[in-house]
Every structure is written in C-alpha cells, then in structure tokens.
Amino acid sequence: MSLSRQNPNLALENPAPESQPPDTESPLKYGERRILEGKLITFPNPRVGRPYTIHITLPEFTCKCPFSGYPDFATIDLTYIPHERVVELKALKLYINSYRDRYISHEEAVNQILDDVVAACDPLEATIKGDFAPRGNVHTVIEAKHCKGDPTP
C-alpha cells in the first residue's frame, strides 16, 4: 500500500520508478529529466533584515575535465548571507547534478556556480569553495566570493 493511501497527508512527490508508467517519449529516466530541467529556485527570506549565514555542503559534485574527459570529483561548499531570497535545497541539488556530464574546468565550475547563485537570490555575501579530489597527485581547492555592492563581478 502506498503512503498516500495509508495517510493522505503523506502524498509522495515522486512515486517509485517501478510504479510510474513507462515513458515512451524519452529514453531518459525521470531523475535525468529533472536534472536537465534543473534551475535554481528561491523562496522569500523569512528573516529579511537579520543577517544570518547559510552553509550548504554538496559532497557529490562531479564534472568532466575539458582536456582529458576524465571525471573530476569535488565537495562544493556554499556559504551565503541571504538578502530577500533563499535558495531551495532540492533545486540546488538538481542544479549541482547538472554538472555531471559537463566538460568544465575546476575554476570555471566554481565561478559559474557562484554567478548562478548570485543571479538567483542576490545574497548580501556568498562564497563557493570547490575542494576537488586529487588526480595525478594534484589536489585543487578553488574559492570564489561575492559581496553585494562590490564592483568586481
């Protein structure tokens, strides 16, 4: 019995894949489609005017090296002080997963994530740190910062 039949207040957002009808229009799985559609969604800051910090760790970031095509793995740390909007976590997860098959350098990935977070929620301050797993005996940590009103991009 599904949760929604046991308790109608516990309706599932996404039923289990085996309970979904087959999708004949697309060879992509439902999760892959959600990742492709993924964009940063925000909601109103419940405490505008009170500076507080949000720290989010995304330990399963992956992308591909634009030169070799080898996979790169990283932990992405996002720390920001919201202004009027806050980033919704599930949307952030899907957005981060969209990098999985992108050929992008460590430096560009971190800077692009920062640009997209700033465009989505216009925080007072934001820092993105990408701690990339060592490959070929090289360990890279990239950090990019934004401060509202700072003339640098």
Rank of each mutant, 00 (worst) to 15 (best):
K64V: 11
A16P: 10
P27Y: 06
A119V: 05
I76L: 15
S68I: 09
Y52C: 07
L89G: 07
F73R: 04
T75G: 08
I41K: 12
F132C: 06
I35G: 00
F132K: 01
C121M: 11
T127A: 11
T57V: 14
S98H: 00
T152R: 15
T140K: 10
Y103T: 12
E107P: 04
I76H: 11
R47C: 09
D23A: 08
I81T: 14
P59Y: 04
P151D: 03
A16G: 06
Q112S: 09
P22G: 03
R135D: 09
K129Y: 04
A74Q: 05
T127K: 10
I35L: 00
K90M: 03
V141C: 07
A144M: 03
D101C: 02
Y70S: 15
E25Q: 15
P21N: 08
R135W: 12
N111V: 04
N14A: 11
Q112F: 02
P51D: 14
L58F: 11
R102M: 11
R33D: 00
S19L: 13
I128K: 05
F67D: 14
R47D: 10
I81R: 01
E107C: 08
R50D: 14
E18V: 14
A91D: 01
Y30R: 12
T127G: 05
I56P: 01
I76S: 07
T140F: 06
L114G: 10
E37T: 01
V138E: 08
R50M: 12
T152C: 09
R47L: 07
